[in-house]
């Protein structure tokens, strides 16, 4: 039988450094959830179509289901848990609650990370900008309008 190696990696997740041994076929999403207990990013489609696993890698929004953990050696990752401060939600997270933008909640961590990526690059987006920014994220219950309202409310406050 063929043997497969383990690969040492050092990654930074939400400001904390981790040294891990991973198998080559493990995705970033798998190790975040199963090894680091960071369960904000969700596995839904697993093929990059739904955006539920969205995280920021070196500041860029990416589907963590389509990234191998072994590729992440030396990289910086932020998940929904990395927003705000302990005990205090971020402005965007609060806005989602206030606008009623969460129903079942499964898409929410990915939606918030995609929206955060938009606001980091464009603090005052138009509604069209928000719709485009969230076009890689599927929600099957709220119907998007409250999600868009939530993101726009932060944009209008100007404190993304």
């Amino acid at each position: 039988m063929k043997t497969h190696s383990m690969y040492p990696i050092h990654i930074r997740v939400n400001g904390i450094n981790y040294g891990l041994e991973v198998e080559a076929q493990e995705t970033l999403l798998t190790i975040l959830r199963d090894k680091l207990d960071i369960t904000g990013p969700k596995e839904c489609c697993g093929v990059g179509e739904c955006g539920a696993c969205t995280v920021l890698i070196d500041g860029k929004a990416v589907n963590s289901c389509l990234v191998l953990a072994v590729e992440m050696d030396g990289h910086d990752i932020v998940t929904v848990e990395g927003l705000g401060e302990p005990g205090k939600l971020s402005t965007l997270q609060e806005a989602f609650i206030e606008a009623g933008a969460i129903q079942c909640g499964f898409c929410t961590p990915g939606m918030i990370m995609a929206a955060q990526y938009l606001l980091n690059n464009n603090p005052h987006p138009t509604e069209e900008d928000v719709r485009t920014a969230l076009s890689g994220n599927l929600c099957r219950c709220t119907g998007y309008s409250r999600i868009i309202t939530a993101v726009l409310s932060v944009a209008n406050k100007g404190e993304a």
Binding site: G48, G51, I57, S135
Partner: peptide, 9 residues
Amino acid sequence: VGSIQIRNR
């Protein structure tokens, strides 16, 4: 191409 998340990778 794809989505923002795909284009970033």
